[in-house]
Write a protein that binds this DNA or RNA. Structure first.
Lengths: 110, 110
DNA sequence: CTTTATTATCGTAATAATACGATAAAAGAA
DNA sequence: TTCTTTTATCGTATTATTACGATAATAAAG
């Protein structure tokens, strides 16, 4: 029955919800933190740091990549990921704007 | 097979992921925006504004309530919701801190 | 060329989220 | 009391997410 009804909402609301989805798993948060801590892009060191199977970590990396939050380059057998700071700043700004907007609208309530 | 492994992550990462979950559906974002626009708490006017069945909207309200982002009081047949600004500010701060932390760690990358 | 190490993808199973009709619950109106 | 309005909950169907073993793919090492 549940064909999703998300298309009935505004573009802005859908976009924000997509962004939020990136952060709904602690593994993806941990991956972003780990990547931000490194001077240089790492590869499968991430796998060692995340308490999940290699296949699962790879899947989370793929999701972060498809959202544009990280970039990955395959270098032979290894592959190398890093944060897409431009995108991350955009995302951060969108979330900040959302909360600011709520605050501004706020007039009086219970 | 997938018994969730979220308990293997840090408390902070899990907490942030729970917060993000509140925003992963455009209906919940729209509800928060709608509530913030009102001077007084409204009730089922939300249902009229959200393009989903009454039962579904009620379910989204319940989720926002269980996360503490909104408060609801039953007043006879009607019920009245409003934003919990204290909680919303906490959530907003946590997200801001997260992005700031990433930025601070950032040293050099590809 | 064969082996090894590293990562991505496939298949699949389990669980969570979404959506709504039907119905219950609650209190005011008739 | 009975009817009406409003909202919450239950049951259930569908879809999405999570998780991992197995396996493919890739390039360097031997």
């Amino acid at each position: 029955m549940p064909r999703t009804k998300k298309h009935l909402f505004s573009k802005a609301d859908v976009e924000l919800s997509e962004i939020a989805k990136a952060l709904t798993h602690p593994a993806r948060i941990a991956i972003l933190k780990e990547l931000s801590r490194r001077q240089e892009c790492i590869c499968g060191e991430i796998v060692d740091r995340i308490p999940l199977a290699q296949a699962t970590v790879s899947q989370h990396l793929k999701e972060l990549k498809s959202l544009g939050l990280i970039a990955g380059e395959i270098e032979g057998p290894k592959s190398c990921y890093c944060i897409n700071w431009k995108k991350l700043d955009e995302v951060s700004a969108l979330l900040r704007d959302f909360f600011d907007q709520l605050r501004t609208n706020h007039q009086r309530c219970c």
